[in-house]
Design a protein around this nucleic acid. Structure first.
Lengths: 208, 208
DNA sequence: TAGATTGTTAATCGATTAACAATC
DNA sequence: TAGATTGTTAATCGATTAACAATC
């Protein structure tokens, strides 16, 4: 426990967290690796391996306590830690992300919205004013956001990323098609590439 | 060539496709695996292994012809095949996906929008009327869509998925939190789980 | 031809699965 | 105690990297 958790495990953790939440909501208090494996479509072996990365929370002959396990995963994922975040680009996608996402449940506080378009600046979205991109420097120096959501086109993204990196904002939820990680090794990036995702669906539909 | 392409390779193909498109747009006609590896942040070895899954398109001492390679990847991904798709749930997210995504460039035709809300049905989004979810059966029998985009809440998704499966719509671009694949082994599913993605960003920000 | 770079095999690395002793 | 189920080690499987002969 406390060791290095592999990337493969990390990718599965949010899903464990969700499933445990549902089990909890359904009134269950414990579950075995076998039961969970059937519900999630994984092997029991993999579940035991995964959960053991961060210490033995199961009990032989009994299984896992759902409450304790979920709390532990929340801690590993940092969901309990407050994290401020801003969003750049309040177009269709940015607006949807702002409205749709439950930031608070993951410990995020969305503290600012920015856009470059005259017609969008000043609008109120989810109780927040859309600020001019020109005020980004000042806002960041005052409010020190920890992360930024990029809902802007590829060609605008490079400049904004450089600007944000200089301001100390080095964590990105990246919906743009700009490849942040290749050019900024110190940045932490989570990409959501909708185009690539739809492309993979095309592959799956085409091949067998 | 023509053999089984592993899942790991498939995940990388859309990105290859994009990078090759950019190189083409910049006027280049050929590239070596080493050059491409530097641009993409991969190893040259991996690129050669990946590209060889579908036959030898390189030339020793020369490299790869960008045009030919990109076309080949497009073919593998099925981007050239016309595929009709409908979207269920024209809320913030569904609206953004409808407006934002370039379906045609991936061979998709978005042929119908559906929602259950009185206030949304009848609206025009991207030149298409939002239809009542009550007309889904009739529409599918008439138009035989190949795939569906789900932008609906988890609790509505199970019913809709069952309905669509019965109608022969078995390919899903799934933005809902309903786990289609676990309950429908024959379905082909590409998940976009924004909550899990933001959760992973939380992890990256929290841990070193 | 000489140089470059692929295609491909072999070596390494990591992740998943299986097995079982420990133990609740 | 007996039965169940974990924690953990070992075996298997697959993916990535390295190496180099083939060849343009």
């Amino acid at each position: 426990m406390g060791g290095i958790i592999s990337n493969s495990v990390i990718k599965r953790l949010p899903r464990y967290y969700r499933f445990l939440g549902e089990l909890k909501a359904s009134g269950m208090t414990k579950i075995s690796s076998r039961e969970l494996s059937e519900k999630m479509g994984l092997t029991a072996s993999q579940i035991r391996q995964d959960l053991n990365c961060f210490g033995g929370f199961g009990q032989q002959g009994y299984g896992y306590n759902i409450d304790i396990l979920q709390e532990e995963i929340a801690y590993i994922l940092g969901l309990d830690k407050p994290k401020s975040i801003i969003l750049i680009g309040v177009g269709n996608l940015g607006r949807a992300v702002t409205m749709h996402m439950n930031f608070e449940s993951k410990g995020f506080h969305l503290i600012g919205l920015f856009d470059s378009k005259e017609s969008i600046v000043g609008q109120i979205v989810k109780n927040q004013p859309v600020r001019s991109i020109d005020s980004l420097d000042e806002f960041c120096r005052e409010n020190m956001p920890k992360a930024a959501i990029l809902c802007i086109p590829k060609n605008a993204a490079e400049k904004i990323v450089n600007q944000l990196m200089k301001l100390g904002v080095k964590n990105f939820w990246n919906f743009s098609h700009y490849d942040i990680a290749v050019n900024n090794p110190e940045a932490k990036v989570e990409n959501v590439h909708l185009g690539d995702s739809l492309t993979r669906l095309s592959y799956k539909m085409t091949n067998k």
